[in-house]
């Protein structure tokens, strides 16, 4: 359980986080979404104890992060993969994981077993004796995730775990995150929407250091600010068709470009039948009609774009 209240972080005159309040429950897989520079990394860095907040309260498992005496105890409960998976290039994969295990306080009789377990869980068996500097990006990312999991932490924090991976690698890492999330809290940041949609049970959208949305991916889609849009194509545009379409109940706006018509409607009402009827009555042939629902992407663009203005 993580409780964040009115968290503020300032770098000189720049405010990276301007009063963030959040709560993460045990076992949640949360996606932190936002454009670059929104404050995601800053938030994560405060949670893992790498940065100190300027103001506000953070409690991890009931422990206040501001109390120096609890700092080491809190740190040992968290596994962390920083952005771009920084690793010691000159070490071997197995050797590195062993080192991290020791630093994280894994007991020496358990260490070998733990390393072996995590190596197979993260698909690193054939790279066990490879030098980290020679690994591809996908494997590096796996080593980074393995490193975050070696001490079986209750909370796993991953900063952009799939950045720079090809689609196949992305799917692999996504599956791995799903697997990890079965028995612990996972907080990951991303600016790729499909990613968050497919792995997370909850999405928090952050922009300019403030939370702009919080909920399940489905909820966010429903409450999205974007309206339902109907795209239509007709063979001939009769003079009064546009006017008549505007008069349909539930239609908020109609725009025409050549023979293509874009109709914005209220979310709750399905006006397709009425529109089709009017179109045909006007003497035009209806060639295409397509209803487009708001996606998480629209929600994201709407929320972060409006804030920017």
């Amino acid at each position: 359980m993580i409780k964040i209240e009115n968290l503020v972080k300032k770098y000189d005159s720049f405010t990276a986080l301007g009063g963030v309040s959040l709560e993460f429950k045990d076992g949640e897989v949360v996606g932190l979404l936002g454009p670059n520079g929104a404050g995601k990394t800053t938030l994560l860095r405060i949670l893992v104890g790498f940065l100190k907040p300027t103001d506000g309260e953070v409690e991890i498992e009931g422990m206040d992060i501001k109390k120096p005496i609890l700092e080491q105890k809190i740190k040992s409960k968290i596994g962390y993969l920083p952005e771009l998976a920084p690793l010691y290039e000159d070490m071997l994969v197995g050797e590195y994981l062993k080192f991290v295990g020791k630093m994280q306080g894994v007991s020496s009789d358990e260490l070998d077993k733990k390393v072996k377990e995590i190596i197979s869980k993260c698909g690193l068996v054939e790279k066990k004796n490879a030098e980290i500097g020679t690994l591809s990006k996908g494997y590096r990312q796996r080593v980074g995730i393995a490193q975050a999991l070696i001490h079986n932490p209750k909370i796993v924090i991953l900063d952009e775990p799939t950045t720079g991976l090809d689609p196949n690698q992305r799917i692999e890492i996504r599956d791995l995150i799903k697997e990890i999330g079965k028995d612990r809290t996972v907080i990951l940041s991303s600016h790729i929407l499909s990613e968050v949609q497919s792995t997370c049970s909850r999405v928090v959208i952050i922009n300019k250091g403030k939370i702009v949305a919080d909920g399940s991916p489905e909820d966010l889609e429903k409450t999205g600010k974007g309206a339902v849009v109907i795209n239509m194509e007709v063979d001939i545009l009769e003079n009064n068709l546009i006017e008549r379409l505007r008069s349909v109940a539930g239609v908020t706006d109609v725009k025409a470009e050549g023979n293509k018509i874009t109709i914005e409607t209220e979310k709750e009402k399905d006006v397709r039948a009425a529109i089709a009827k009017i179109t045909v009555e006007s003497g035009a042939g209806l060639l295409v009609m397509e209803r487009k629902q708001t996606s998480l992407e629209d929600v994201f663009i709407n929320l972060t774009h409006n804030e920017n203005e």
Binding site: P86, M103, Q104
Partner: peptide, 14 residues
């Protein structure tokens, strides 16, 4: 430069 400091300083270590 490589960013490993972020891993190092988030170990339970003063």
């Amino acid at each position: 430069k490589s960013g490993t400091v972020e891993v190092l300083l988030t170990f339970p270590l003063e």
